[in-house]
């Protein structure tokens, strides 16, 4: 009985997505009927073909992948390196630096977006990948996350490696990072998904269709084809698909990342 209730709740939560998929197969005029149909009477894939061409899906996919991929690699490396220094090394200024970095979290994104935009503009990087990517390469959340992961990790293994003759560089790459693989994966997945859904910054720094990333392209499509809902739904499905795939493959990592930040998200 209660389990039925759970299933019912699950269906309610998923229903909007089902509707999205369903509408994406409808013809443009079908939605004008009353009552609005839940399922397409004559399913068509024309919307997908059109959306792929209009986004254009390949270009957008590539741009977003470049953005999310670079940022993912950048954030993982810088966060892991910084976290390693904070947890495993002793040096003057460690605690002060860490506190200062934490302090950076109090700056909301929008507060930084404007001066960063002016900076990127002054550098002549508007509408380029460097402009899109450079500001996102380091994440304080990422540093906190990796630091926390390393703190949880037993020291003994690294000490043993030190005695075995490993230098800090070897230690970092061959011992600490492999040991922290779950955390590294979680951070990578989180960074990737975060950038896939990044909207405000790409909106600010990109101008041309050539540089559009997923969310921006989807929003533009919404403006261009305001009346054609099935068409929009097809594009929405296309853009969401990679996210759901990542989530399906790495659900554990996604959950670990979400938990750490207390479900902090950009919206």
């Amino acid at each position: 009985m209660r389990k039925t209730l759970l299933v019912g709740a699950a269906i309610v939560m998923i229903a909007p997505f089902l509707y999205m998929v369903s509408v994406s197969f409808m013809g443009e005029s079908e939605l004008l009927r009353w009552p609005p149909p839940l399922f397409p009477t004559s399913p068509t894939t024309a919307n997908y073909a059109a959306a792929i061409a209009a986004l254009p899906f390949n270009r957008v996919l590539l741009n977003t992948a470049v953005l999310a991929g670079c940022v993912m690699i950048g954030q993982v490396l810088t966060s892991a390196a910084a976290g390693y220094a904070f947890v495993r090394l002793k040096f003057p200024g460690r605690d002060g630096t860490f506190r200062l970095m934490t302090l950076a979290l109090i700056l909301p994104t929008i507060f930084l977006v404007i001066p960063r935009y002016l900076m990127i503009e002054a550098l002549g990087w508007i509408d380029t990948f460097p402009g899109l990517i450079s500001t996102e390469l380091v994440s304080v959340w990422g540093i906190l996350f990796m630091r926390h992961a390393f703190l949880m990790q037993p020291r003994d293994i690294e000490d043993a490696a030190r005695l075995d003759g490993a230098g800090e560089w070897t230690l970092f790459w061959q011992v600490t990072l492999p040991l922290a693989r779950p955390a590294v994966t979680a951070l990578a997945v989180l960074a990737f998904m975060d950038q896939w859904r990044n909207f405000l910054w790409p909106l600010m720094v990109t101008r041309s269709a050539r540089m559009e990333v997923a969310e921006v392209a989807l929003a533009r499509l919404h403006g261009d084809y305001a009346a054609n809902v099935p068409y929009q739904m097809a594009a929405a499905v296309l853009v969401s698909l990679p996210l759901f795939l990542v989530c399906l493959i790495a659900s554990r990592s996604v959950m670990a990342g979400v938990r750490f930040t207390g479900a902090d998200a950009r919206l």
């Binding site: 037993p154 003994d156 293994i157 000490d159 043993a160 490696a161 030190r162 005695l163 075995d164 003759g165 490993a166 230098g167 070897t170 011992v175 492999p178 040991l179 693989r181």
Partner: peptide, 30 residues
């Protein structure tokens, strides 16, 4: 590393991502 000392810890301190053979071989490889 320069002291030529080996240490065994309370926990086995083995690298979980390596096999026993690779674990034992690790200091030699380094």
């Amino acid at each position: 590393a320069a002291r030529d000392v080996a240490m065994v810890f309370q926990s086995p301190a083995l690298y979980p991502h390596l096999t026993v053979r690779d674990n034992i071989a690790f200091p030699l490889e380094l």
